[in-house]
């Protein structure tokens, strides 16, 4: 493979090892029913997301974090309670917010003159079945047109209590976005004016973009041959 590696370098090395483990994958090719003859049965890979970062965060990140913490303290809220952790990864600043304080934090981020995150670009749900107690994540991206900044808020909820406060009162644009996340992940946004299905038919069963919901394809038939649906084929875990 010597002639192949003349490039600018190999695949970027895995990030720091102190991240947050959200799952463990075993084996390969999706063989999980015991009949694994692939020879890869002993393969174990932990899935680690970037973990908490300590100060200084660098650039304007420190300024935003300071302002947010100061503004929260002014409202009598201990920043440590509201902000579970702060992650700086790939030049992006992420605040993990405790869900009961989400509305306060979002309102502060929107109204504080030094922060002014006027534009919310909606909510994206992510389902981590292996992350026990924090299975469902809601990810918000906030953009400040005044200061030209972008930050991310991440909120999690356990699967057996999938409630997150709604941000529609702070960012009305989240109306449809929260309905979409409810539709696909079953996250219930408390305080949303009309949390109903938006994409799927009203009588649809289940929440289709969760990891435990099958893709739902059918096997494709050819002349004398059949290919299983994409989620039934072998995969590289």
């Amino acid at each position: 493979m010597s002639d192949q590696e003349s490039g600018a370098g190999a695949v970027p090395a895995p990030r720091d090892e102190h991240g947050e483990v959200i799952g463990v994958r075993k084996g390969m090719f999706g063989a999980d029913n015991g009949g694994d003859t692939s020879g890869y049965g002993g393969l174990i890979r932990t899935v680690t997301l970037p973990g908490a970062t300590s100060r200084p965060y660098g650039g304007w990140f420190d300024e935003v974090a300071d302002e947010l913490e100061g503004a929260l303290e002014e409202q009598g809220l201990l920043p440590g309670n509201a902000i579970e952790k702060t992650v700086v990864d790939r030049d992006e600043l992420t605040f993990h917010i405790a869900r009961e304080h989400l509305t306060t934090v979002a309102r502060t981020l929107r109204d504080d003159p030094a922060l002014r995150f006027e534009l919310c670009t909606g909510v994206s749900g992510v389902h981590f079945p292996g992350d026990k107690g924090r299975e469902l994540h809601a990810v918000y991206h906030l953009r400040s047109i005044t200061h030209g900044r972008l930050i991310r808020l991440e909120v999690s909820a356990p699967d057996d209590d999938r409630h997150i406060p709604s941000l529609v009162a702070v960012y009305p644009t989240n109306d449809w976005h929260e309905r979409e996340t409810y539709d696909f992940f079953g996250l219930i946004f408390d305080g949303h004016p009309a949390l109903t299905r938006i994409m799927m038919p009203d009588d649809w069963q289940g929440f289709p973009q969760r990891k435990d919901y099958p893709l739902g394809g059918i096997a494709i038939e050819y002349k004398g041959a059949q290919i299983p649906a994409p989620d039934q084929r072998r995969s590289y875990s």
Partner: peptide
């Protein structure tokens, strides 16, 4: 035939 979108929707 559903094409490349072989899924639930």
């Amino acid at each position: 035939s559903g094409g490349m979108f072989n899924n639930y929707a």
